[in-house]
């Protein structure tokens, strides 16, 4: 099967740090997989996602995304990789409207010196409708609740129509009802568009149903990787991962 993401013996070290944050990570992800990444705070989940999309440069090993080695700026690959970051700096006065923020998700993909087309706007608008944020599309992004902002960021990442989507705790500000709702939508995308999903998730109960594989991280390493059913066995969870998933 075609590989979407391939990490071979990868270390990632933050600038100014001596000890790598990701240690010797080998991880192969096939196209169309739906993967949940769990683990305690500071385990390296965010660092893993940003190593995959090249926002952080690995300093050992090899990172390949969609068959291409990630070297240099990585922008060409990021046009096909959506990202919902864990946190973003939006304050109350941020002068951008929701609809612009969602449309911006497509700007990299549209490319330099190419105009924004009607179709781009249509796709962005469809994504907003899909995420149920159509009614706030002309609101300033800084005036939203945490949950609404999170939906905007998901719509923004989906608007790019990426082949791979990386989400970093995308449900953290959503209430249970909204988690279920958004989860269903992601499942739909996974099924119909064949996107590859890698989702960092805090609350095991809200891992979407389509998830086929769970990766457990701790202290910069992958400590477990397997079928959802095998990894999320109640007794395993209780013994091994106690405190990891709080």
């Amino acid at each position: 099967m075609d590989k979407a993401i391939e990490l071979n013996a990868v270390d990632t070290t933050y600038e100014g740090e001596k000890i790598p944050c990701l240690k010797n990570i080998t991880l192969h992800i096939n196209k169309g997989e739906f993967i949940a990444v769990i683990g305690p705070n500071g385990a390296g989940k965010t660092t893993l996602l940003e190593t995959i999309n090249g926002l952080l440069e690995s300093n050992r090993g090899e990172v390949k995304v969609l068959g291409k080695a990630l070297r240099g700026d990585g922008n060409s690959i990021r046009k096909y990789v959506g990202y919902v970051p864990q946190d973003y700096s939006i304050d109350e006065l941020t002068p951008f409207l929701v609809s612009d923020v969602v449309l911006m998700g497509r700007y990299g993909k549209i490319g330099l010196l190419k105009p924004i087309t009607k179709k781009d706007k249509e796709i962005a608008s469809n994504m907003m409708e899909y995420m149920g944020i159509n009614n706030i599309s002309k609101r300033p992004i800084g005036k939203l609740s945490g949950g609404q902002a999170q939906k905007v960021m998901i719509a923004r990442a989906l608007a790019k129509e990426p082949e791979i989507i990386l989400m970093d705790e995308p449900f953290s500000n959503l209430d249970f009802e909204a988690r279920r709702e958004v989860s269903e939508k992601l499942i739909h995308f996974h099924k119909n568009k064949g996107m590859t999903f890698v989702i960092v998730i805090h609350d095991i109960a809200s891992i979407p149903k389509s998830c086929n594989r769970v990766i457990v991280m701790d202290n910069g390493r992958i400590v477990a990787d397997g079928n959802k059913e095998d990894i999320l066995k109640p007794e395993l969870l209780e013994m091994g991962y106690k405190g990891m998933v709080c």
């Binding site: 926002l55 922008n75 990202y83 970051p85 612009d100 911006m104 700007y107």
Partner: peptide, 23 residues
Amino acid sequence: IMFFKEINAILFDRKLARSSGIN
């Protein structure tokens, strides 16, 4: 005018702009 998309995305958030493939 020529780089409106890139400038606008960068003005919103540089890291997010980079994550969407803008240099």
